[in-house]
Design a protein around this nucleic acid. Sequence first.
DNA 1: CGATTTTTCGTTAGCGTTTACGAAATGTGC
DNA 2: GCACATTTCGTAAACGCTAACGAAAAATCG
Lengths: 338, 338
Amino acid sequence: MTVRMKDIAADLGVSVVTVSRALRNRPDIAEATKARILERVKRLNYRPNLTARSLVTGRSSLIGLVVPDLIHPFFGEIAKGLSARLRDKEYYLIVSSSESDPQLEQDEVEHMLAHHLDCFVVASSRKDTDSLRRIDEAGVPLVLVDRRFPGFASHFVGVDDVKVGELATEHLIAQGCRRIAHIRGPQTSIGNARAEGYSNALARHGIKLPDSYVVACGEASDSDGETRGRRAMEEILALKPCPDGLFCFNDTIAVGAMDRAFEAGLRIPKDIAVVGCGNFHYSSKLKVPLTSIDQKSREIGERIAKLIVSLLEKPHSARSRSIVLEPELIARESSRLR
Amino acid sequence: MTVRMKDIAADLGVSVVTVSRALRNRPDIAEATKARILERVKRLNYRPNLTARSLVTGRSSLIGLVVPDLIHPFFGEIAKGLSARLRDKEYYLIVSSSESDPQLEQDEVEHMLAHHLDCFVVASSRKDTDSLRRIDEAGVPLVLVDRRFPGFASHFVGVDDVKVGELATEHLIAQGCRRIAHIRGPQTSIGNARAEGYSNALARHGIKLPDSYVVACGEASDSDGETRGRRAMEEILALKPCPDGLFCFNDTIAVGAMDRAFEAGLRIPKDIAVVGCGNFHYSSKLKVPLTSIDQKSREIGERIAKLIVSLLEKPHSARSRSIVLEPELIARESSRLR
DNA sequence: CGATTTTTCGTTAGCGTTTACGAAATGTGC
DNA sequence: GCACATTTCGTAAACGCTAACGAAAAATCG
């Protein structure tokens, strides 16, 4: 059925190893025979069986990508950037969308491990490192995206999330807001970092606000971001005096929050200026285009790809590299007050 | 390093095959020994090496997904639905985003073939069947999404695109529009089918319009949908008398077209009612929420998964199955005239 | 209790490739 | 033309698993 090395070797009267050498561009083969073999390979449309190769070399050319939600713009862009860069090196991406379900994520990682992937890229939705530890035990390189786990050895690529919070809050302050609320994310490294940035900026400007100005909106797995944003906005609407600025953990939440604000008769940005995070591609097309912090998702994907390639080409390079990108604020109408 | 069957077998004083039998739940093994083995397997955290298994069984548990653009809401949803359903059966998804580049797509398919995938799911951006034929030659089952290639044997899952065009156009007519323009898609089965539906609906109502009411907007690979939509809208603005209704090939193009219409001082839907296609998740949140035809992307993904599972479980089932779903119109403000 | 069936297990071979090693062919120095 | 290094190739074994077969053990039957 399908053509194997054996067939080509038999056809040309050489041994299988010689064919193998020609295909992998080994030095210990005469140019003439190599040419002869490659000609036949091309003519028969032969492709080496990577499964077999993988079994003996121990390298599968497969990269595992585990994200909470494939359709989420942030992770989607990462997948795209990663895929584009990995292509040249003939690595392929095995993806898993864990639906922000910690148990599912753990199972997926477990199963993917059986495919003997060369590297894992994980944006974990877990609070612990249980699934990551299994990867570590298996001796597979691991790149963390977006989430950090202090004390756990792995590589990291992402933006500086403290700066994200600072950028957003500083911007609102610069626009003249003084009563700035924050719809914070989950109790993870990201959620905490952004909230920390928010506090930093306020402190820097001597603005003191009650704790009630920071409202939680549950976990990513609770329900979709919009309804969580709407719920959080309820709480904010109840604050007296009403905030004049709002920094949301991400754009999806901001969309829900803004929707609710409109229903309450508020005008954006006049009554309350809003800043989101993620700069999702639809954020510029909303009823009121949303100011947002760009997380450089595309660039993150490409940087991960580069990191992986260097990791796999010289396995004993850096033990634990950390690539931190600068976030960027994209100002739009939702915060334009002057 | 990593534990193998051999190790477990040696530990327990049984043969490797016995371990294999226990793991695959074979009938020809005593319950007692099976239990003994499974206990040890669990305790050692053993997972069979799928690469090795794949080499001998010829089945990799890997499904290839080739789409023009992973971040496109339609394909993203499909990937998600597919991944979710395949999970239970322990199949994994290898994805490739071809960036709507026909050459890239061909190369990707070629490379993926080397991984000996169990099945291909392709939303082709090619006009010919060159890459698909290679899949066919390799004897790998193929499911086509969204695009059909008449005369080419494969499975198909997607919506009825003629009906998409009819639904959109009938709706505009029902809203009172009579001069209905169409920004058509590329010269592929989808583009043609939707344009055909548009013509059908007009004919059914005895509406005759000049050819200039159908404007092309280039290929998907030309540039992003929005700028293509803007460009197409230029042509439409030049029509005398100006159309009072517009059916766009997809939502992204509709966004561009509407943007340009706003700039020209038109009001939507009052001056021109707009219907898109795809019902992307941001379409309801636009400045003017967009009426759109839902393509059932999530359902498509799930149906594909079911099809694949049945294909792989009984390989000699139907030769060429075709699953056609009904599109659904979601009415919003952009076409609300009465 | 011996003959026969059924259950349980081990042996051998092979999936398609690469690695390690050694042998043959070719080239180089004098 | 001989000793040696270099280039080019082939043989054997292995990667971790499963398929096919047959042997041993246990169960069933008259």
